[in-house]
């Protein structure tokens, strides 16, 4: 199984630094971004499975970022990280395609747990996609060429 690659998005630099370190100690590959814009750039450059996204950020906020991620990278799973006052926006996030949400202040273990769940979901989804493609290729091997062309 492929190792889970995480992206942490939060405007608090210190939080990013500490959390990245803690997660790496637990053996996860972690990338960080301090804004929605940066997160989108990172997603372009690298393969990321799960994004942990703070809802309240200056500039492009969590929900806008989420919509952009889902538009360009529909298979990336997103876990929203929210303060209590913005539960409503977390709900909006779930409606826009977030996998789950977490309440601040959250334990690192909670975050990892939710991230793992989201990763599993993604893997199941990828599995299905793979199975479907296999079926398609079995029926008509020429489709591979078409897929490549696309």
């Amino acid at each position: 199984m492929e190792k889970m690659k995480l992206l942490l998005v939060d405007d608090e630099e210190r939080y990013l630094k500490t959390t990245k370190r803690l997660m790496e100690k637990k053996g996860y590959a972690v990338a960080v971004a301090s804004s929605g814009q940066e997160a989108l750039e990172t997603l372009q450059k690298r393969i990321i499975h799960v994004v942990i996204l703070d809802v309240k950020m200056p500039g492009m906020d969590g929900n806008q970022t989420l919509k952009a991620i889902k538009q360009h990278h529909p298979l990336v799973e997103v876990v929203m990280l929210t303060g209590h006052a913005t539960v409503d926006s977390a709900i909006d996030g779930l409606k826009s395609g977030a996998t789950d949400y977490l309440m601040k202040p959250a334990d690192i273990d909670e975050i990892i747990e939710k991230a793992e769940e989201a990763y599993e979901k993604r893997q199941r989804l990828e599995e299905k996609i793979r199975a479907a493609q296999t079926k398609k290729f079995m029926r008509s091997p020429r489709e591979i060429l078409k897929d490549d062309e696309a």
Binding site: Y15, T18, L22, G83, H84, P105, D107, I108
Partner: peptide
Amino acid sequence: AGFAHEINNPLQIIKGEHLL
């Protein structure tokens, strides 16, 4: 409510630091 929300951010950091 606004204060409480803002205080949650530093608390989150403290929690992370504590764990580290």
